[in-house]
């Protein structure tokens, strides 16, 4: 029996199919989940993919956060279920307060779409054990609301507890404080990041690199060995 990883689709989600594909490429079963459905279909982990759920109305991720499926996700995440939020999914996770801080408009106000170099700072989360701490990876980045902000106390706490999971390298693309590209919760089961690992899992497309695949193989190993 293989691991079942749920991928949520909200109205306006774009990257659910790529995420399902990445899950399958890693060797797990991808289970589509619908925003209006509270039932998580007994999945072992959940990915919130990128896109523009609810048109980013009000604030990116703010309306998805109140969808029926998120009620269950929040409850299960607090009980230890692994959750990964990518881009818009990261924005949803900050709006739910499963992760601290918030995402704002890029400091230069432009939409960015490019390959982005990152350093994996924490290789002990549920989604990063197949990387090594300090490893440099390159995956696509594409957003306009990618600037991570939190108050100084929260930033210091994240640094002290090793909860900055990914940092931008070779220049900060959006004004994110402390070059933060992604963070984890205290337990390491909830991870969010702006760049897109699910778009870098096969050599045929994109950078030609498969630097993003480690997210999905990490979670698979954890679930299979659990």
């Amino acid at each position: 029996m293989t691991a079942r990883i749920g991928v949520i689709t909200f109205p306006g989600t774009l990257d659910d199919r790529d995420t399902q594909r990445a899950v399958r490429v890693a060797g797990a079963e991808a289970v589509p989940l619908w925003h209006r459905d509270k039932d998580l279909k007994q999945v072992d982990a959940v990915v919130l993919p990128g896109g523009f759920s609810y048109g980013d109305y009000l604030r990116a991720g703010s309306i998805s956060r109140f969808s029926p499926v998120m009620e269950t996700v929040i409850e299960q995440a607090k009980a230890g279920m692994p959750v990964l939020g990518i881009c818009n999914g990261f924005q949803v996770l900050t709006e739910t307060h499963l992760l601290p801080g918030a995402m704002l408009r890029n400091n230069h106000l432009h939409f960015i779409c490019r390959d982005q170099k990152l350093r994996v700072e924490n290789a002990n989360t549920a989604w990063t054990t197949d990387y090594e701490a300090g490893q440099e990876i390159s995956v696509p980045l594409k957003n306009i609301d990618g600037r991570y902000v939190a108050d100084e106390r929260t930033l210091d706490m994240l640094e002290a507890e090793g909860r900055v999971a990914f940092r931008y390298l070779d220049g900060n693309p959006n004004g994110s404080l402390r070059d933060i590209a992604g963070i984890t919760n205290e337990a390491g089961n909830v991870v969010g990041l702006m760049p897109h690992p699910e778009h870098a899992v096969e050599p045929l497309v994109g950078t030609g690199r498969t630097d993003g695949l480690g997210f999905f193989t990490s979670i698979l190993k954890r679930l299979v060995n659990a």
Binding site: L104, R105, N106, N107, L109, R147, V149
Partner: peptide
Amino acid sequence: LKPEILDPQ
């Protein structure tokens, strides 16, 4: 936005 938050718009 809170006063300490950068408002590029």
